[in-house]
Simulated assay, not measured.
Amino acid sequence: MLKRFGPLIVLVAIAAVFFALGGQHYVTLDALRDNRQALLDVVARNPLGSALALVGMYAALVAISFPGASLLTIAAGLFFGTLVGGSLVVVGATMGATIVFLIARNASGDALRKRIGSWGEKLADGFQQNAFSYLMLLRLLPVAPFWLVNIVPALFGVKLRDYVLATAIGIIPGTFVYASIGAGAGAVLAAGQELNLRGALLKPEVIGPILGLAALSLIPILYKKFRKEPVA
Results as ranks from 00 to 15, higher is better:
residue 8 L to C: 14
residue 4 R to P: 08
residue 226 F to V: 07
residue 23 G to R: 07
residue 171 I to A: 05
residue 33 R to G: 05
residue 107 A to P: 10
residue 145 P to A: 05
residue 56 G to E: 12
residue 98 T to A: 02
residue 80 F to H: 08
residue 20 A to S: 12
residue 53 A to N: 00
residue 215 A to I: 13
residue 55 V to Q: 03
residue 147 W to L: 03
residue 33 R to D: 00
residue 209 P to D: 03
residue 198 R to N: 13
residue 202 L to P: 02
residue 56 G to F: 10
residue 229 E to V: 15
residue 183 A to I: 00
residue 198 R to M: 15
residue 190 A to D: 15
residue 59 A to T: 08
residue 88 L to Y: 06
residue 110 D to V: 04
residue 135 L to W: 01
residue 215 A to C: 05
residue 95 M to I: 15
residue 78 L to P: 06
residue 131 A to C: 05
residue 120 G to A: 13
residue 55 V to T: 10
residue 23 G to K: 07
residue 220 P to V: 03
residue 222 L to D: 04
residue 83 L to W: 13
residue 8 L to G: 09
residue 205 E to R: 10
residue 187 A to Y: 00
residue 210 I to A: 02
residue 45 R to G: 01
residue 58 Y to T: 08
residue 206 V to N: 06
residue 101 F to H: 02
residue 229 E to S: 15
residue 17 V to E: 12
residue 169 I to N: 01
residue 142 P to G: 10
residue 108 S to K: 06
residue 209 P to S: 06
residue 111 A to I: 11
residue 118 S to I: 15
residue 135 L to D: 04
residue 190 A to E: 08
residue 116 I to V: 15
residue 213 L to N: 09
residue 17 V to A: 12
residue 163 Y to F: 15
residue 95 M to E: 01
residue 214 A to Q: 07
residue 131 A to V: 01
residue 189 L to I: 05
residue 85 G to R: 01
residue 224 K to R: 13
residue 223 Y to F: 12
residue 148 L to I: 14
residue 98 T to K: 04
residue 30 D to K: 11
residue 193 Q to G: 10
residue 32 L to E: 01
residue 41 D to S: 11
residue 60 A to S: 15
residue 167 T to W: 00
residue 67 P to G: 12
residue 34 D to S: 15
residue 128 Q to D: 02
residue 134 Y to C: 03
residue 63 A to N: 03
residue 50 S to D: 14
residue 148 L to R: 01
residue 92 G to N: 07
residue 115 R to G: 11
residue 200 A to I: 14
residue 185 A to Y: 08
residue 20 A to W: 09
residue 39 L to N: 13
residue 29 L to G: 06
residue 95 M to C: 15
residue 206 V to T: 12
residue 114 K to C: 05
residue 83 L to T: 07
residue 103 I to F: 07
residue 65 S to Q: 12
residue 37 Q to K: 09
residue 177 V to E: 02
residue 199 G to V: 07
residue 214 A to S: 15
residue 86 G to P: 02
residue 163 Y to N: 09
residue 115 R to V: 07
residue 30 D to W: 00
residue 72 L to P: 03
residue 48 L to D: 01
residue 28 T to K: 03
residue 69 A to K: 08
residue 150 N to M: 04
residue 189 L to Y: 00
residue 37 Q to C: 00
residue 41 D to I: 07
residue 175 T to I: 11
residue 231 V to S: 15
residue 214 A to D: 02
residue 151 I to W: 02
residue 29 L to R: 00
residue 10 V to M: 09
residue 191 A to W: 09
residue 86 G to H: 02
residue 107 A to I: 14
residue 195 L to F: 04
